[in-house]
Design a protein around this nucleic acid. Structure first.
Lengths: 164, 164
DNA sequence: GGTGTACTATTGATTACGCAACTACTTTAG
DNA sequence: CTAAAGTAGTTGCGTAATCAATAGTACACC
């Protein structure tokens, strides 16, 4: 009897971890599709384009080392190279070399980049709020952010990421 | 004074929705990288390969209509075509046409597919639990699953998705 | 002061996926 | 019974990202 109960308990515990995981997958898929479609239609930016501009706009002097940006966006270095390729072509970001360390190249936000970031931010934050606040109360959102932040590596990128 | 408080309140509300959203992005990126690397290394499957096999193995007769699978995995029809291309080439899934409606093609799990699904499931569930349970209690996982499930379209795919 | 190790960044090849356009079949309405 | 509308699925094309391999630069240590 105790045996049966304990087996059931184990099965439930397994289920709940897997349920959280599958829902995380689905939640990502759903929200990402919707928000990235809006962002792309209205501002011609992908989510990572936007996040990159945002982080640059909050960084000291509007510039960041490329690796730093990679860590901040959870991208590989090559991912950042390609991301910035696009933003440079669009004139939103400039490449600035570091005089004291020739390995380093900064990504530097241009004036136009700063404008686009501000414009997109305004609309995008609206979309995000519309989607999330329609279904979750502020308390629940807080709880959700807290729980997700407990996963390793999730909360680390927050310093540069708070709303002013 | 009331004015100031209310403005502050608004700013906090905005922040919490955006915080939840960015953490969702990061949580997806972090967990996905880790779990998909393991799954790929040990079983040669992507996460969607795995999820597809899993859903097929739980479906009546080990088969599903391709659109049904698409909805279940939150993929577009073309995504499913390509996903199944790979699984068919690997001999894990077979294409079965429907005799009464020639538009329809079923994806049918093969014996080998069923084996691979079972083998991968065992290890993968272990990885998922290790990752999630290391940082969240069962109660918190339950709460997390609940909160994510409130987002539109997230909880819908669950029928086929419960652990047996 | 040269040599090995670590760091920054890019490139080539590959993969996974979405969108739009299309074909093929079925159902409904007239 | 046929025309129109709807549904299932595939294909071409484009894009974002990965990994592995590579090149250039900095620095520590003997």
């Amino acid at each position: 009897m105790a045996q049966v109960l304990s087996e059931q308990r184990v099965a439930e515990d397994r289920a709940v971890a897997v349920a959280a995981w599958t829902r995380l997958l689905r939640a990502y898929a759903v929200t990402t599709r919707r928000l990235s479609a809006e962002l792309h239609a209205e501002h011609g930016l992908t989510i990572n384009d936007y996040e990159a501009l945002l982080r640059l706009s909050r960084a000291e002097g509007g510039r960041m080392k490329r690796v730093e940006l990679a860590r901040s966006l959870l991208l590989t270095p090559s991912g950042v190279t390609r991301l910035l390729e696009g933003l440079e072509r669009a004139g939103l970001v400039e490449r600035v070399t570091c005089p004291t360390d020739l390995r380093i190249a900064y990504a530097q936000l241009t004036a136009e980049g700063r404008e686009r970031a501000a414009a997109a931010s305004c609309a995008h934050v609206g979309s995000v709020r519309a989607l999330f606040e329609e279904h979750l109360s502020p308390g629940q959102l807080d709880e959700l952010a807290d729980l997700l932040g407990r996963l390793p590596g999730v909360a680390e990128g927050d310093e540069n990421c708070t709303v002013e």
